[in-house]
């Protein structure tokens, strides 16, 4: 993988509050297309807050710093504007939307992403292709979005949407959680197929087991709202071997 000249996503000194409590306390992160950045951290370190803030969840308030996307500060953009511009979040716990079929929802989303109505035939082919690659049968798209989905089905549905929408920056929040080995392999293969010079990935994870399938260029350790260490692939192995304790700065709050 090669690094492109201008970074696509630049996060500078990002501070985020949830319910008046500061969770992120100055995050810096630079992601270019073609790169995979893993963000690892224990529970409560702010991983999901980072993912939600990057997509503009209204409950996560940016109090300081900026989120630049293709050079523009998007910190006050609505989530839909960010998505249309090419940001994507694969949710740890995607919401169920009863009564709305996946095929219908995703068609609307794709039309928004492209800024024009995509011909039905093209869409159908795109969707069927993506479903075949993720080993889900066609009936899957006729089900209501995440309604009654198993853990594995939810994650596949997320990656399916990613495959159809073709984002430039994808944030994958704990995409490995709740998956058995087979499901994890299918989902990870799904992500790997999408990797390439047109996509940057922020892979948020607690454990490094997904990193056995998806190789990151950079690994960052998030602790108590700050990135405390960054390094290469080997950092993930250290976490695997020793846990997070060695990375916690002396005197840092628990």
């Amino acid at each position: 993988m090669t690094e492109s000249a201008t970074p696509t996503l630049e996060v500078h000194d990002l501070h985020v509050e949830v319910n008046d409590k500061e969770i992120l306390k100055g995050i810096d992160l630079v992601v270019s297309k073609g790169e995979v950045h893993a963000i690892m951290g224990p529970n409560g370190s702010g991983k999901t807050t980072l993912a939600s803030a990057l997509l503009g969840h209204p409950r996560y308030r940016v109090t300081q710093g900026e989120i630049r996307y293709r050079g523009e500060n998007i910190a006050d953009w609505t989530p839909d504007a960010r998505a249309r511009a090419g940001l994507f979040l694969s949710f740890q716990y995607p919401a169920a939307v009863p009564g709305v079929t996946l095929v219908n929802f995703l068609r609307h989303a794709l039309n928004q992403r492209r800024g024009q109505d995509v011909p039905v035939r093209e869409y159908t082919q795109l969707l069927n292709d993506a479903m075949a690659k993720l080993k889900v049968d066609r009936e899957f798209a006729r089900r209501y979005v995440n309604d009654g989905f198993s853990g594995g089905e939810k994650k596949r549905a997320e990656i399916l949407q990613m495959a159809v929408l073709k984002p430039e920056i994808a944030i994958l929040d704990e995409t490995d959680s709740g998956l058995d080995v087979d499901a994890l392999r299918i989902v990870a293969e799904g992500v790997n197929r999408l990797l390439g010079p047109d996509l940057g990935v922020v892979l948020i994870t607690h454990y490094n087991r997904i990193l056995n399938y998806i190789t990151p260029n950079r690994v960052h350790i998030l602790y108590a709202g700050r990135i405390v260490t960054s390094g290469g692939r080997e950092l993930a192995d250290e976490v695997e071997a020793k846990g997070y304790d060695p990375f916690i700065p002396v005197g840092a709050p628990a």
Partner: peptide, 12 residues
């Protein structure tokens, strides 16, 4: 639910 759908590009 709203955030989920909006995060896929649908206006509110």
């Amino acid at each position: 639910q709203l955030f989920y759908l909006m995060s896929r590009g649908l206006p509110e």
